[in-house]
Design a protein around this nucleic acid. Structure first.
Lengths: 242, 242
DNA sequence: TGTACATCAGTGAACGCGCGTTCACTGATGTAC
DNA sequence: TGTACATCAGTGAACGCGCGTTCACTGATGTAC
């Protein structure tokens, strides 16, 4: 019986050396501490020194992990998009693919649940931009992830005939042109009217969540669960039947 | 012919003394400089010292006008709500009150136009909250101003029979309860179904504007005018016919 | 109309604080032979 | 298996900066008589 090699106990995808493993762990700890700070103060107030303090390190040590504050913020943004993208994908995957209405509801609720439990990460990606921070191109692909799930639902619903493709309203030429691109890239077979409805309910969803999170319905809505359910059910009808 | 008194050339509503007049003017100049800084950096980065610098004053002088940085921010928030409230009211008033659809379109376009020309003031009130700033109650009344215009349209549209009140979808009990309060306070005679549709299109409007401003439709929509027109026309149909 | 006093605006220095980033360094971990 | 060297992580001091707010002050404007 051969003696196990030292690496045998670590998962196959783990980095080879102990140093690299520690590095990956500390990178995560830095991001977690930064996320905690985000929750306290918001992104604009995120401070490298405070993050270092929380980890018991000296502030200059962080520069071994992130070349600058902006790079740390970028990492948080990418993580946030990936996190919401993942919960949306999972919620969608938990519903049978023919159940278009249920998939929409599952997606909507997943976004809201994630937003409510991670309000500052939600703000980081869907709130107002951070002063002085310019998003690099690395954030583009993860940003699209949640919306791609909805587009997948539209593709399936149209293909299966569950989504009504007859009802149509006039669509201006400029928009029609943009919808051609969207269909080509991410929603084959979905007609203009359905894409326009998709955009319409998608932005509505984020409007509803932002209004709830930012208190714009304070003193108007008290039962946010009931309110959300109703609005999202309405969106489902609009999506399916136009 | 009697000699004019010194005060004769000033408008009747102007403060009595020269000192009070200068004070009011400087208060406005401070707010204008602060708004300019907002556009540069965003609210979180708004600095009293920088505002003072721009006005050629010493930073401590600002404390004669605003007791703290938060009070200056509050003033900017109130001004921003009043500004968007005013343009919305004017846009609405320019349309005959029976033209419900046209009024909705006018209101929507007024909000978007204002948002595009004052993106940082828009963010100040509809974007993510400013870290460390807690909105005082002074902001509540002005915050309601734009929405009250839409509610006025609903009241008129229902009273005149222009808005379809027959189409209705199930409304959960919790929401029904909230709608009772809303109807009592600001929308007499407007049934639940219409109020719920009103909330839907209202949040949709802000979702659309925020997505445009914050670049969430980057590479998807290029002709934002066409896109906005289509979405808002769609909302008009929903509002009127359910 | 003129004077005495009170109110107010703005100054300049200071307090105490926090920030991002650079840099030369020490000591530990990893690699090649 | 052991040794020599290279790589890397973390330290601590420093640079240069900006911030909100307080405070005693000077001089101008307003008010009461």
């Amino acid at each position: 019986m051969p003696a196990p090699t030292p690496a045998a106990s670590s998962p196959p995808s783990a980095p080879a050396t102990a140093r690299a493993r520690v590095r990956a762990e500390l990178t995560n700890e830095i991001k977690e501490a930064a996320r905690r700070q985000l929750a306290d103060q918001g992104a604009a107030a995120l401070s490298l020194r405070a993050v270092a303090r929380e980890l018991g390190m000296v502030s200059s040590a962080l520069y071994r992990y992130f070349p600058s504050r902006d790079d740390l913020i970028t990492a948080l943004i990418v993580d946030a998009y990936d996190a919401v993208g993942l919960v949306v994908e999972r919620a969608d995957a938990a519903v049978a693919s023919g159940e278009v209405r249920a998939r929409w509801l599952a997606i909507s609720r997943a976004v809201r649940t994630w937003a409510r439990s991670h309000p500052h990460e939600y703000s980081l990606i869907y709130g107002s931009p951070i002063p002085g921070y310019a998003a690099p191109t690395d954030t583009i692909a993860p940003a699209a992830r949640p919306a791609l799930v909805l587009l997948g639902v539209l593709v399936d619903g149209v293909a299966a005939g569950t989504i009504d493709t007859n009802r149509s309203t006039p669509i201006p030429k400029g928009l029609r042109h943009d919808l051609v691109g969207l269909r080509r890239d991410a929603a084959p077979g979905v007609p203009d009217a359905v894409l326009a409805r998709g955009l319409w309910v998608w932005t509505q969803l984020f409007g509803t969540i932002s209004f709830e999170l930012y208190g714009h319905l304070h003193n108007v809505i008290h039962d946010y669960d009931a309110y959300f359910d109703e609005q999202v059910a309405r969106s489902a009808d609009l999506l399916l039947y136009g």
